[in-house]
Amino acid sequence: MGVRLTVSNIYKNYNGIPLFENCSYTIDRSGVYVLMGPNGSGKSTFLRMCALLENPDRGEINYFEGNRALPKDINLMRRITLLLPEVGVFNTTVFKNVAYGLKIRGFKNNKIKEKVEETLQFVGLIHKKEQNALTLSTGEKKRMGIARALVLEPEVLFLDEPTASVDWKNTEIIENIIIQLKQRLNSIIIIATHDKESTKRVGDFLLYIREGKIYKEHPDKQIP
C-alpha cells in the first residue's frame, strides 16, 4: 500500500502576500498530477511544503500509510524527493551526483554502480557518467536531477518546473521519461509547470491553484 498525502487547512504567507488560505487537499492515488497556476500563485512553495522542507504558517501536511500518520523524520524524508527548479548540481561527476542519495543511505558500492548505471541509461546520460556534472547543458542537468531523484525510487516525487529553460529536444526527452515513469514506478508524481501542452501529454490529473486553494480539473480542461 502506498502513502497518502493530506494537506489540512493550511495557511501560508510569502513576503507578506497570502498564498494559501484554509487550503485542504488529499492525494491518495498513484499517478502524475500536474500543478498549474499563475506566476506567484505558490506552486513552488506548495511543493516545498509537501516535501517537508518548509512548514505552513498554520495547518498541517501529513503522510499516511493506511490509517497511520507517518512521523515527519528522516525515514519519511527518504521516501519523498523533490527536483528543484535549479537542480543544485554537485561539483563532481554525473555518476557521483546520481549516486549521492544511495551513498548517504549506506548502499554497497556494487549495488550503487548497478542502480546508477541503470538510471543513467534510462535518462540517456550513461555516456556522460564520468563527465563533471557542471559542464552539462541546462536540459542535461535537469535530466541528471531527475536521475538523481529516480534512483532512490521515491514513493512521492515532486518535480518543480522540470522543463523550464530547457530546449524542445530535452523537453521531449524529459516528458518521455515522465510518461515511462508512470509505468515503472507506482508512485505519486506531482509536477509544477506553466506548460499547458505538457500537462495534456504527461498528466493524469490536473491540479489548479486559485485564490489560495487547490482544485482538481480534467487534464483537457482549458485553463485561463
Partner: peptide, 8 residues
C-alpha cells in the same frame, strides 16, 4: 537544499 531533498 538539494542535499536535503535527496534525504541527507
Amino acid at each position: 537544499l538539494a542535499s536535503r531533498t535527496l534525504g541527507a
